[in-house]
Design a protein around this nucleic acid. Structure first.
Lengths: 182, 182
DNA sequence: CCTATCATGTAATCCGTTACATGATTAT
DNA sequence: ATAATCATGTAACGGATTACATGATAGG
């Protein structure tokens, strides 16, 4: 039980297990919950969702129980150590900025037609925005405030992306200067 | 020489080799160029920059030449096939949206104090913005238009991120509605 | 000379993705 | 009953990251 590195994916699993506590949850459960929440801004394929709790179990952050019969499903539950790690993480300042990692910018960098690229981006971001807004209207009343705020940040983010790519499509990037932006 | 999958990283290497052409370049050269350009929005560790051209060589997208003596450095040059692949990629519509993958949002989702998180994000994004602007003032005149535009998109993006997190810090997210935003 | 730093490369590991496989349940 | 789909898990592969290691060069 040596110290294993806890990644954002680890904390996502821990966070969802903490919400489920004191009930146990299977990886399948976790993946389902992700589907209408965290998957939007921290996607993780299901195979990973099966493996991460195994890792966490070796570090003592969760307990693992396996069915003896039938499907031999695995059930996980967060431990004290897991909750403590999660709580620490909540208070830790963030190390790293998110990087753009935007293939659209990469294409433009290497000479793709910016107007064409931008139009696609606008459409794609608008679709994502609509998805978020639809989701929000369905679940806003049932989720804790942090989760709602995260969703609202996602919405605000997508709006800004739509604006940005519209500006690119219109040839309005760069803005004239770092002029005052109310 | 079976078809290998070309990732954004592949195109980054191809793109930089195309710029260098007809000269050859070592992975070290490539990494240097990245340092003040692509690294900002498509970071790749140096080990990858040594390996990717090897892959590309097996697919015929670049040629590899190795020094016989001394450091036995490897030199790469883009081929016709490489240029063709790059050109195709430039015109291909984009498949995937960039995901947020923002650890700050994840933390808020799981209950971190949004004001604290937001203040950190503002500072971090402002620093990044300043870095971009400094870079721009140094190189704007020497780089091709696509590269400058990519940088300007990065700048615009960071400004919007600063705005977004300022709004979060001020409790102004969500905005009242999808009201008209000039 | 010696040391620090730059330049160059390989190895080991990790994580994510794709693919495969099988048990259970629902619908026809 | 049978087919389709849901639920559950493992395996294999490949790209990305970390770590290690060594050759060259410049500064003291």
């Amino acid at each position: 039980m040596q110290a294993l590195k806890l990644t954002p994916t680890s904390f996502m699993v821990l966070g969802l297990l903490e919400q489920a506590a004191p009930a146990e949850a299977t990886p399948y459960d976790i993946k389902q919950w992700m589907g209408f929440s965290v998957d939007n801004f921290w996607p993780t394929p299901h195979a990973q969702v099966y493996r991460e709790p195994e890792r966490l179990a070796t570090g003592g952050y969760v307990t693992e129980r396996r069915e003896e019969t039938g499907r031999r499903r695995k059930f996980y539950k967060i431990t004290e150590a897991g909750s403590a790690a999660l709580e620490t993480w909540r208070h830790e300042p963030l190390d790293d900025l998110p990087e753009l990692r935007d293939a659209a910018v990469l294409k433009i960098f290497f000479g793709a037609d910016p107007v064409v690229v931008a139009r696609h981006q606008v459409a794609a971001h608008e679709a994502k925005l609509a998805e978020y807004e639809h989701l929000r209207s369905n679940i806003a009343e049932f989720i804790p405030p942090g989760q709602l705020l995260a969703l609202d940040i996602g919405i605000a983010h997508e709006r800004k992306e739509v604006d940005l790519w519209n500006e690119v499509a219109a040839g309005q990037v760069p803005p004239t200067t770092s002029a005052p932006r109310a």
